[in-house]
Each structure stands twice: as C-alpha cells, then as structure tokens.
Design a protein around this nucleic acid. Structure first.
Length: 814
RNA sequence: GCCGGGGUGGCGGAAUUGGUAGACGCAAGGGACUUAAAAUCCCUUGGGAGUUUCUCCCGUGUGGGUUCGAUUCCCACCCUCGGCACCA
C-alpha cells in the first residue's frame, strides 16, 4: 500500500484547483453571496503561525459555505505600506518597493502551499498606485467636505533623527533607533474628523452586539469614552471674564474649594504675570513631556488669581496643576477634594480645604479623618436649596438652575480624538495636497491622480521626511492657478489603506472610480471577518468610520462593514507569544515541509477553540499527523473493496448502528462548523474514524461502509482539503470532492432505539439502565428498582419521590 | 483603580435549556507484532481507600446559597491574563 505522502498529494491538488479555477467569486451570481474575509497581512517577509491560524479558520468557513450553496468571495491581499520596508532600505540598502514585492511573492507562495482557497484574480497590494490613487480621491472628497483638516499639534519627535515617531517607536522616553531623548514637538499634521462620528460609532455598536465579541465592543465603547456632564462657567473675581470647566459631577459644585488649569492652557500666559510662577509652569511642562505617567506626582502652583463659584458665590483659588489634561474638556477642572480622588490628593498636598457635599450615613462627618475621597452616591448637604436631594437627581437640577442664568449647559465629552494621519515617511501613500502661494492649501486635481511616490530616493532615516528632499516631487504647479507650488511631503498612516481595502476587493481592477458601486452593493457587507484581537480598537474602529464616511459621500449603502467578527487567540509556545527574542518561534515552512499543510491546518484547528490562545505543541502536531495517516490507511485499505458497491441488504442492527454513527457525525460536524467549534468537530471525526476501524465490515456490509467513508471524506475536506481530494479519488470518483453537496442528516437514522438512563439516588449516580427510547417513568422505575446496585443503596430507606427526565435520568429521593 | 476574559486530570481541552464531569488528542505505563528498532495495533490512565473480576469516599479556584440534582444559576472572596489608565 502507498504511504500517505503529503508533499506529493498537496502539490498535485493545488495545481488541479488552479486549473479548475474552483475559488472564483462570481459577481452578481444567482446563488446567495457570502463574503468571508481575513485581515490581510503586512508583507514582513514570511508568514507566521498567527497567519496560519487566521487564514485556516477563514478557509474552513469559505469552503464550508461553498459546499452549502453560497457564492463565496474569499480574497487576499497585502497591507503593503509601512515602516519596516524603510528600515530594510536603511539597513540593507534595498528599495522599499523591491523589498515589499519580493516579500509578497514569497508569502503568496506560502499561502498557496497551505492550500487556502482564495480568488487569485483579486489580489491587491496597497502600495500599488492603482490602489492608493483611489485613497487619494477619498481624501480629496473628505477634504472638500471638511472631514479632513490640517492643524498644529503635539507629537513625539526625535531631535537627532529629525523625524516624528509613532507612539510605539518611543521606548522608555527614548528613540528606538538612536536612543536620544524624545521630545514633544508641535507641528502641522493632517487629521480626519472622526470625532464627528463619535456618537454614531458608539450608537451603532448596538448593531454589532449579535455578531461581534463583547470584549471588542467594550474596548471600543471605552475608547470612544462618552461622558455625560456639563460645562460650568467660573467668573474671575476681578473681571467679568469666565473660565469654563467640564464636569460629570455638577452635583458636587457646592463642594468646589479650588479650580485647576492645565499648565499648557494658552490662558495661563495671558492671565499670570508673575515671572516666578511662569517659570514654575515651564518646569511643569518640561516634566510632563519627559516623565512617564506613572512617576508623575501631583504638582501645581497657586496662580494668584481667584474665581467665583457660580453656585454659591464663594471665592476659590485658581491653581495651575500638572494633572489637568489640555486635550480633554476645556483644560480647566473644578476641584472637589471630598468627592474626587485626584482633587483629594492635590488638596491634601497643598492644604486646600475639603468640603463634604455628598453624604451617606456610614461616613464620618469630619472630612479630616477621611483617607480618600467619597465618590459613591448619597444625598446632598452644604448645597443650599439642593440639600437633601439624591445626588443623581441633583446633577440635572443644578445644571438646569445654572443654565437659566447662562452659567452652565449640559454637554457630552469624548475621549476619542481626531485621527492624525500624517507620517513623515517615504513608504506610504502621498497626501494629495499642494501649497500654492496664491491659492493656499489646495487638493491635487482628480485627473492628476495618483500622486505617485518618486522611485529614485535615498532613505537614510535621518534629516526629516524623505519626500521633502526630492525636488522633482516637491516642486509642482498649482492645479488652480498654475503657479509654482509645493507638494505636501507627509504620507498617510497605513491604517488608512486598511480602512477600505475590503471594498476594493469587490472590484479590484476597476479603474473609473474608487470601486464599482454595483459590485460593492452585491458583495457587501462582509459576512464574516476574522483577525487578531490586537486590532480591537484601531483598525476596526477606523474601518467602521470609513464605511460611514463613504456612505455619506454616496459610495456605499451600509453603515457597518463587518456583520460578524471572529477574533482568534494568539499562537503561543512555552507560555509566551512566539518571538525571536524568546527563541520560541515555530516556522510554518518547517511544519509544512515535515508534515504537510493538511497536518498544520488540522492541528491548529484542533488544539484549541478559535478564540482562545493556542499553545503550540510539537507532540500535538505529531498526533495530528498520525491521525491523517490513520485516516489515509483506513480508506486505502477499503477503497478497492468498496468501490462501486451499491447500498444493499437488510438493515441489520450493525448497519443501523453504522448509519447512526454516520448521521451523528454529520450532525455534530455540521453544527460545530456552523458555530466555529472546529476543535470539537475534529474530535468527532476522530471518534468516527476510531469507530470505523473497529467496525470490520462483512462482505454484504461494504455498500454502507462505502457510504460512511465517502461522507467522512466530505466532512473532513474543509479542514484537510488536499487529503480529502486524494481520498475521494481513491474511492473511485472522477469529479472533485468539492463538487459534492454537504451531507444532510437522515433523521430516520439519527437516533437510537434504546437509550441509557442514569439512575441516581439523592443526586448520586448509582447505576445506568438501558431501555427503549421515550420510555415512561413507571417502566424506568421498575428497571431501576430491579438493579442490584440500586437495591443496595435503598436498603432500609424510604423512597419519598422520583424525578424523571425523559431519556436522561431518574433521580430517586430517599 | 476601571472595563473585559478566564480558573476543569500530568498537559491541550470536552460537557444542548441545570441532568452519568473528564469526549478527543498529547504524555505516561503495560501488552502484541519484530532478530531488534521504528511504525502500527490493543489495553490501562482524576485522586484516595478497601474485603481489588468488585465496592465506597472525595473531586470542576475558595466559602456560602438556590435546587431532587450545580462545571453550569445567585452572593462573597482569591488567583490569573488582556485592554485602558490623572479623561474631571
């Protein structure tokens, strides 16, 4: 007998699949469509186990859906812009484009070897000008609608490398490349006004509750960070001007004993004249910029200025305090030390009085004995006409009262900030903006798109934006007046590309617009999206945002791109994420070379539920390989004997049992695949194989045995497609297994005639009895009382009652 | 601190609406085959105890509760992983 040889089988079938063009997604096909999408990879060089897991999950779903009558779109592409390509250029003197395309070629060959069923006519690379041309168009439309804008803001900057650094490139306050201190710098950047969509992004989470993991949704809710509160005006003691604060606790307004303002607030320089104070403010700003959050102690200084509490007219001091964020609210905060922990700490340090305004019986009335602030609910005290009110109620009342005097207004604030999309890098999509001395900031005209990246470029990693040094790129003419003008040299954050690639897959070659609206209408929404949990906020929020923007620009109809989301767990080894530094990396190439793609796929699905972390095990993969060998031998043993044998003979108990096992397997595997419980689906298939091994069919049972082997082959084919094709062929079929339809449960065989019923006494298992299905209680009681074991436990006891659950259990209470 | 997961054998993990805890796999032990090994096949395998072809007790992080019956539901607590973190 031939041995199972995955390297030969897999190559053979991959070629056949390509020839048959099996995985083609047909635009506007009559079958119902199904869009199955996995997050596309960054072309880092080679795929890792996380990719294998991600794409195997998607492939099983895509193949299963094709079996069950769907027209499936299952595409792949590359998130091809990004910093590693520039690092390669610096370190290895390879052009980023060359590096990226070489990596994509290699990774595509790896994906091919793993047998993933992608539609190969839809591969996209975001660094292709044919792709980013349309991204530039989207930007231009956004800019024209005021959805994109330019502003000056604070960023991380390395003074040595002369470049902006992303947050993740700052390590312990130092530049990751040259180790110099990173400073905050205020520069101009481009922003997307995602905050305009904050409310909708939050509201529409309701639409995703059925299909998305709750932890992703809760992370997004957290990130958007909507708070209900009020703006309240505090008048200066000595002028008629106001400072406005944002608070979520207007109910504590009578407890204000100071107000604090951010050192970075522009008002500070206006209103404080004392040089010593201003020097101290400067020192605080420097500290804020270099220190890590966790070692920032509360610090501040009295500004010399007082304000008036609008609720009771009390004069309160204004402090300049380092814990007040300039980026949130108004940059000014009312200080209520008794009912806010930060204010409590600050007031304790600076000997500012604390005043109780929310009270509960179990509290001490002497605030000086308090170890921390009281932030729970209670009723109001020391609050004038509001005394005695429940504090939640008082929030409304106090705001209403002040609003009538134009001193307060109800408001919402969000943690979400506008999205900074400017990167001072080469390997990204150029932002299609031109600075004209006459016309100002203008967009490139649509006809001139794409604004292409210049190819001849030197990337050193030093001296600021690489594009700024390419004169042929920078110098251009104004599309409006024709004057000499300069191009924007920033490129887009790569999250911009990944915010709409799933739309481009619907018509990847369309050259008249961003995409073909009709095709997008046919294919969207993505029915199942699969990817890593690390994208819970950034990518998934940006993609949701872009979909809404494109809807408002008239390009798409839906508001949410991804109906269902599956977040797979990490692949770990020795308890830690695989990483070069830990030396616990398992290379998919090695696994495929040693065991084949089918074994890799099977193990990665079998070893853990999809959403949990998966502990890699060298012994485990051996086990999966053994199983496939066992399966191969089973079918190779019988293929010749069962070929073309018809179903025949009477339904003997043995045949009935065989049919029951077949149907129970069909039912369990189908159900489990539908629910993405691949590990238990595979376990069931293993059980079925074990059963078939022990069955040893007689001559006249071979017809039914053939049927068992055939259904087994179909059921396992989404997991191990190459082997399944081979087995199907061995069983004598000339057409490919994937042309079959998915087995249906034959209800008449799906249940057994007899059932085992557990007999428990006071909830403890004492025996099991076998009886006919749906037997009535009396009958089971009789059987139970006949059992020796049960008799023994009932000796000298009085039966009080029976609890009977049909086909399951009889509990005897004594 | 806040939010969200998760605690089941030596290990990865199974257990419909509360109804026989430990499926399946790994590891381990024993046996068959073999000159031998590999491969393969078969058996055992949660812990403890005993009168050991059988029987009993304990057992799903801990302590309570609801129930005829709890891994599953409720309350309190412990541990652990992930995210956010001075957001007023």
């Amino acid at each position: 007998m031939e041995k199972y040889n995955p390297s030969i089988i897999e190559k053979k079938w991959q070629e056949i699949w390509d020839k048959l063009n099996l995985n083609k997604a047909v635009d506007f096909d009559e079958k119902p469509k199904y869009y199955c999408l996995e997050m596309f990879p960054y072309p880092s060089g080679k795929i890792h186990m996380g990719h294998v897991r991600n794409y195997t999950i998607g492939d099983v779903i895509a193949r299963f859906k094709r079996y069950t009558g769907y027209n499936v779109l299952h595409p792949i592409g590359f998130d091809a812009f990004g910093l590693p390509a520039e690092n390669a250029a610096i370190n290895a003197k390879i052009h980023p484009a060359k590096w990226t395309y070489a990596n994509m070629d290699y990774m595509l060959s790896q994906l091919q070897k793993l047998g993933f069923s992608y539609d190969k006519d839809r591969i996209i690379a975001t660094c292709d000008p044919k792709y980013y041309k349309w991204e530039q168009k989207i930007f231009i439309e956004m800019f024209k609608r005021g959805m994109a804008y330019r502003k000056e803001s604070e960023v991380n900057f390395c003074p040595h490398c002369q470049t902006v650094l992303a947050n993740e490139q700052v390590e312990d306050g130092k530049c990751w490349r040259c180790d110099s201190e990173v400073v905050k710098k205020t520069i101009f950047s481009w922003y997307f006004k995602i905050t305009d969509y904050a409310d909708e992004l939050l509201e529409d989470i309701k639409l995703l509750e059925q299909g998305w993991p709750s932890r992703v949704l809760s992370q997004q809710i957290n990130w958007i960070g909507k708070s209900e509160g009020a703006f309240i005006k505090f008048k200066f003691e000595k002028s008629d001007e106001y400072l406005e604060v944002f608070t979520t606790r207007p109910d504590t307004l009578f407890g204000v004993t100071f107000v604090s303002i951010s050192p970075k607030h522009p008002k500070v320089k206006e209103i404080v004249k004392d040089k010593n104070i201003l020097d101290y403010v400067e020192k605080m700003i420097v500290d804020l910029d270099i220190k890590k959050d966790y070692d920032k102690e509360k610090d501040g200084i009295y500004s010399g200025i007082n304000l008036v509490n609008p609720a009771n007219g009390e004069i309160v001091p204004l402090y300049i305090a380092n814990f007040v964020l300039m980026e949130y609210g108004t940059g000014v905060v009312m200080g209520v030390p008794a009912h806010d922990q930060r204010d409590f700490e600050f007031a304790t340090k600076f000997n500012i009085p604390k005043k109780i305004v929310i009270y509960r019986e179990d509290l001490s009335k002497d605030v000086t004995t308090w170890k921390s602030s009281f932030v729970d609910s209670g009723f109001l005290v020391n609050s004038g006409e509001f005394n005695g009110l429940q504090n939640e109620l008082a929030k409304e009342k106090i705001v209403e009262h002040l609003a009538s005097k134009n001193l307060a207004r109800k408001a919402y604030q969000y943690k979400l900030r506008d999205w900074n999309v400017s990167r001072q890098r080469y390997w990204g999509a150029p932002i299609p903006i031109i600075y004209c001395p006459n016309c100002g900031v203008v967009t490139e005209s649509i006809e001139n798109l794409p604004v292409e990246l210049p190819e001849n470029i030197e990337i050193t990693g030093f001296g600021g934006s690489p594009l700024a040094k390419v004169e042929s790129f920078v110098n251009t003419t104004c599309p409006i007046c024709g004057a000499k003008a300069k191009r924007e040299t920033d490129t887009f954050d790569t999250f911009v590309e990944s915010s709409w690639y799933f739309l481009r897959y619907c018509s990847p070659d369309y050259d008249k617009d961003i995409f073909d609206k009709q095709k997008v209408k046919y294919w969207m929404d993505v029915d199942q999206y699969i990817g890593g949990i690390e994208h819970a906020v950034m990518h998934l929020l940006y993609a949701r945002y872009f979909t809404k923007v494109l809807r408002d620009l008239g390009y798409v109809e839906s508001s949410e791109p991804f109906k269902r989301l599956l977040t797979q767990g990490m692949v770990i080894k020795d308890g830690a994420k695989m990483s070069k530094s830990k030396g616990n990396v398992v290379d998919p190439d090695d696994i495929v070379n040693t065991y084949g793609a089918d074994t890799a796929r099977l193990f990665i699905l079998f070893a853990a539920p999809v959403d949990k972390d998966l502990e890699w095990s060298d012994e485990g993969i051996e086990g999966s390989f053994r199983f496939l060998n066992r399966l191969y031998r089973l079918i190779a043993n019988y293929a010749f004997k069962v070929k073309d044998v018809p179903l025949q003979g009477t339904l003997t108990p043995r045949i009935k049992e065989l049919l029951y096992e077949i149907n129970s397997c069909v039912q369990k595997v189908t159900n489990d695949i539908e629910n993405y419980h691949f590990n238990t689906a595979i376990a069931k298939l293993m059980e079925f194989v074990n059963f078939l091994y022990s069955f040893n069919p007689e001559e006249d049972e071979l017809g039914y045995f053939r049927q068992a082997l055939e259904k087994l082959t179909i059921l396992i084919s989404p997991f191990v497609p190459h082997l399944a094709c081979e087995l199907w062929e061995m069983l004598g079929h000339s057409e490919i297994v994937f042309s079959q339809s998915w087995p249906k449960v034959e209800l008449e065989y799906a249940t057994k005639d007899t059932v085992k019923i557990a007999i428990t006494i006071n909830g403890k298992l004492r025996d099991t009895v076998e009886t006919t299905k749906d037997a009535d209680q009396k009958e089971v009681e009789k059987l139970a009382l006949n059992s020796e074991k049960v008799k023994k436990h009932l000796e000298g006891k009085e039966i009080k009652k029976y609890v009977y659950v049909k086909n399951k259990i009889l509990n005897i209470i004594v």
